[in-house]
């Protein structure tokens, strides 16, 4: 998920080409106060005219505590992004307020209610403590997303390379999102010149259960993909497990052996999930390599 400043037409026009699964057109932190109106208009225009292909488009709007919040929604919702990212969600009330505004706007523009989703950003201790309630406040909420920069500021700690200060927060976001059946997106890695650090962090958050991670520069995209792409050997093993399980089911067998090991229910579920992810990356299980 690539962040792109909403006030930079030169960059926005290239939004579809960098290999990101989605782009986050930013009206918030990346845009100076004097540029807010221009960025909003530009993003709304781009949403209408640019062919984003298979890239999902999300717009990060300004927070409910700013004077831009309502205007942002008013102009962005009719341009039909896939979702808006709500910064600094503190409570279910923040989601409900946005939800009500969005429903009214959708209605006025003849759109089906709920067309545009919400990605709720958790970037304060208070927001984090309400993670599950926020995730379930409205069916519009499609993802929880961690805002690491603001959260560490709120906690009064430094952001470290290892990221232990975010360990609990990450676990909490993943758990709440999973419980609500929605996606969990991790925060950005800010040092563009440190792809190794990004690779380590990306690997960690994949292992923790996140389903996506934000990038602040196109060069970060392949690094993040690398972390999500299943290891080919694991992928082939998952393929063998799932195929064996399907075969066992056809033959009415309960227990099965794959590579000499007993395989049961949860292993098959995990294998299926890995297989699905691998297929998204164009991997093929029957290829022996």
């Amino acid at each position: 998920m690539l962040y792109m400043p909403g006030n930079s037409p030169g960059m926005l026009q290239h939004a579809p080409v960098f290999g990101a699964d989605s782009v986050l057109l930013d009206l918030e932190d990346a845009v100076a106060v004097a540029e807010k109106d221009a960025a909003r208009r530009l993003v709304a225009h781009f949403l209408r005219v640019l062919d984003f292909g298979r890239v999902e488009v999300t717009v990060r709007i300004n927070g409910a505590d700013t004077p831009y919040f309502e205007t942002d929604l008013e102009e962005i919702i009719p341009a039909r992004p896939s979702a808006v990212r709500l910064p600094k969600c503190q409570s279910p009330g923040d989601v409900l307020r946005a939800d009500a505004l969005m429903t009214a706007i959708e209605e006025r523009h003849g759109m089906e209610a709920g067309t545009v989703g919400i990605h709720a950003m958790l970037e304060t201790a208070r927001g984090l403590e309400h993670a599950f309630e926020i995730a379930t406040a409205s069916p519009r909420v499609k993802a929880l997303t961690l805002g690491g920069q603001d959260l560490t500021a709120d906690l009064g700690v430094q952001k470290t390379r290892e990221g232990w200060e975010l360990f609990y927060a990450r676990g909490r976001v993943v758990m709440a999102a999973r419980a609500a059946g929605i996606a969990a997106f991790d925060t950005v890695w800010t040092d563009v010149d440190d792809p190794e650090g990004l690779a380590a962090e990306a690997k960690q958050i994949v292992e923790m259960g996140f389903t996506g991670k934000a990038a602040i520069h196109p060069s970060q995209i392949p690094v993040i993909h690398e972390a999500f792409r299943p290891d080919p050997r694991e992928f082939r093993r998952a393929w063998r497990i799932v195929t064996a399980a399907e075969e066992a089911e056809r033959q009415g067998k309960g227990v099965l052996l794959v590579d000499g090991r007993m395989v049961d229910g949860p292993i098959v579920v995990r294998a299926q999930r890995l297989l699905d992810l691998g297929v998204l990356y164009g991997m093929k299980g029957d290829e022996t390599a």
Partner: peptide, 8 residues
């Protein structure tokens, strides 16, 4: 180059 389009 660090130009993302050129790199692409």
């Amino acid at each position: 180059t660090r130009n993302p389009v050129d790199l692409c």
